[in-house]
Design a protein around this nucleic acid. Structure first.
Lengths: 140, 140
DNA sequence: TAGCACTTTGCAACTGGGTTGCAAAAAAGT
DNA sequence: ACTTTTTTGCAACCCAGTTGCAAAGTGCTA
């Protein structure tokens, strides 16, 4: 994805496009799986951890990315779809591979409605399945 | 729950009943919600954090407790049912209250089967809904 | 374009949950 | 009683996430 496209995309979401933000955005776009702060830290040696963190927090606020926790309590971030408000994080399933530590976004798995007992109000839902991914399965 | 009952229960699961283990067990039993390491640490001032941790790890291994992560990556532990192998953690839903930080075990909510795409193998499933619990709702 | 305000960044330091090495204490075996 | 094994407390560490602060960068005004 080109510099200019990212710039336009960020500004559409109400974020000024700085060098770091574009760098982080590009990294998120080119990783084809949800990535963690430390993965980004490793990939983007020129950018400080705290800056990446702040960029990700900003992206979260402005629905540029959504995040979910894997089975170790580590957040994985991935870009939202382009249009409008991102509510993907509320509804879809993630798979975390305990072997390679990568996570997968299983958009296509149907998730049924859950009705909470009286009095509970839901803000977000996290469905994470831990196990072994096809790639690691094959490697054994 | 009495000392002797706990001792019997632990030994039935193949764990020697030491003072710390009984203390931790009792704390888990008397808290009627799933509790975290730090909650136990606070409640059991006589027992060291690392000891509580080791007891919990042992309990996990021997299916005395099961655990799940809330939305902050913090583990919550709760006693398994008494009989046989505990597979509760594989199937039921937890609710984490973002206001009071307590978690609830929603055993009675029906969770439908999820079929993973070809090649994925599931070891455990985590379904956590974050939001506001009835108690905190009422307090506002 | 100089001066000023605001924003963004890097650095260092810290938090908090979880985890480990090690030696002392306790329990079990002989 | 003495040796061996298990359990425990302490201190220290790991790592993800987070913050305070000052320096650098950006942009605006005059």
């Amino acid at each position: 994805m080109e510099y200019k496209d990212i710039e336009i995309r960020l500004e559409k979401k109400g974020i000024k496009a700085t060098a770091n933000r574009i760098t982080v955005y590009r990294a998120l776009a080119s990783a084809h799986v949800p990535v963690t702060l430390s993965m980004l830290e490793e990939a983007l040696v020129t950018v400080d951890k705290s800056s990446i963190f702040r960029v990700l927090s900003l992206f979260l606020e402005h629905d540029v990315v959504h995040a979910f926790e894997d089975g170790r309590g580590v957040l994985h971030y991935e870009l939202c779809g382009n249009e409008g408000h991102c509510d993907l994080s509320d509804s879809h399933l993630h798979f975390y591979c305990e072997s390679c530590q990568k996570s997968y976004c299983l958009d296509d798995v149907h998730l049924p409605e859950i009705s909470l007992p009286q009095g509970f109000t839901s803000h977000s839902i996290s469905f994470v399945i831990k196990g072994i991914c096809p790639h690691c399965q094959a490697r054994q």
